[in-house]
Design a protein around this nucleic acid. Structure first.
Lengths: 108, 108
DNA sequence: ACAAATAGTAAGCATAAACTTACGGTAAGA
DNA sequence: TCTTACCGTAAGTTTATGCTTACTATTTGT
């Protein structure tokens, strides 16, 4: 259930901004924190959550720590999302009105 | 920013279960509530949130209210997600190591 | 060796939100 | 008409979590 944690992560606006910042390339924690309205420790905590969810990875660089997007986590999320497409969906929406299988009424 | 609310919605496990239940076809509120460990009003509240996010729609059916997945909301979410793919991503991950543009060091 | 820079962690607080029970409202069948 | 089934909303409680301010650790450069 790793897509669950991925969704939890990206539900937070600040975490989304961090993630979108990383889309333009790897960056160290303080670099990411610059331009965000929260403190650097907050960014550290967010990055930890993102990493636990498999959405980012990090790499040491001196005293710095460079974070970058991990496509694997995104892949799982996308795979889960794609389960919701298919012919059935549109046929349902466009009022073909299938007969609602389990529908206990008082009298047939 | 409707993908934001979509992500918030699907971050909740109960809401995900409701959404996945609807994947197998439209269903009334009490039918959805059956098989879930929460009360029926809770399901009603969740469905309202899902509807506000554009992920589901509803249709009256007597005293019942039939909910079904709205592909439009899913589309926006998917479009946002797709922004994170591209050649850049994999080149970043596989240690091609771009030079980290903004990197103030004490001495060059 | 010492100082500076960078980052992670702990403790504490405040807000959001998910759930329950109770109530009101509408549509259908006898 | 009156009863039953179904649904949404209000009020209130509890839990989760995002943020801040310390503090500690590690690495680099002089």
């Amino acid at each position: 259930m790793t897509y669950g944690s991925a969704l939890s992560c990206l539900a937070d606006p600040t975490r989304r901004r961090i993630f979108e910042r990383l889309r333009s390339g790897p960056a160290a924690v303080s670099v990411v924190a610059r331009g965000l309205p929260v403190s650097r420790p907050a960014v550290s905590q967010h990055l930890k959550v993102l990493k636990d969810a498999g959405l980012v990875n990090d790499r040491p660089d001196g005293t710095r720590r460079v974070y970058y997007i991990d496509p694997d986590g995104l892949g799982e999320l996308r795979a889960w999302l794609d389960q919701f497409w298919g012919a059935a969906l549109d046929s349902f929406k466009n009022d073909l009105e299938p007969q609602l299988a389990s529908r206990p009424r008082r009298k047939p």
